[in-house]
Amino acid sequence: MSVLVYAEHDNAALKGVTLNVVAAAKAIGGDITVLVAGEGCAAVADEAAKVEGVSKVLLADNAAYGHQLAENVADLVAEVGKDYGHILAAATTTGKNFAPRVAALLDVGMISEISGVESADTFKRPIYAGNAIATVQSGDSIKVITVRGTGFDAVSAEGGSASVESIDVVKDAGVSKFVSEELAKSDRPELTAAKIVISGGRGMQNGDNFEMLYKVADKLGAAVGASRAAVDAGFVPNDMQVGQTGKIVAPDLYVAVGISGAIQHLAGMKDSKVIVAINKDEEAPIFQVADYGLVADLFEAVPELDSKL
């Protein structure tokens, strides 16, 4: 039995979440092969070869895969993956985009966002925004799975010595074209990888007020997130959204500022180790999950917090 892990990267470096996916692959068992598909991404393959527990790296380096277009990537993964027992990808917008296509091409069901491995064919996954945890079993010969990074402790990026093999499978469906990308640039850690996350909600009132959170975040080495309400109101861009349909985070410390705590938001952060809530509404549901709650006006509490750190 062997597992194919699809590497998440930006053509220059391997994304940390791949280490969590490899951890899920280890829990399933069997040889682990990592597929690196992209353009000019040989360095990523070398990095993947060093990951603990990886026995082989396949490198598909072609312009067709440069922007991770689902049509091309899915065709590639379906062809390469048909000889494997499991195909795993991260439950990121890249993995979620192409993995269901792979499953359909292979005529197998798919299991989304697993948070636990029970056995080689049985997995745990959250449903209903995490208000229930389902244990599901796949009867298909190939299991196509996306992995929720926060469910698995990352394996070490070092210690492996896998071989890198180039494959010349070129799949260009020719029906889609990359046009442009607007990526947020930030010196702060990535939301899903940060040890500390500070998020703002509707209570922040506008985008300028997020500056207060950025200042605290920079003192703590934290990432800054937001609730859906804050994103919908246009305070901050979509890539900062934490919740059922945004990013799922589980840092050591999560500080929710001016966030009421709708179940859709809780779904994205309630596995954090320590949760702090700052809200002036003492009845806000966020306090029901917070380890430390401070009932206060955030416009006084956050600057004070900043000065005390």
Partner: peptide
Amino acid sequence: PRVKTLKVEPPAERQAGIKVASVEELV
């Protein structure tokens, strides 16, 4: 169905913690 649901459980409940009185106490 291709995928069989064996069981559905409630998630681990998170207990509400404490309220702190000031930013100082929080820190």
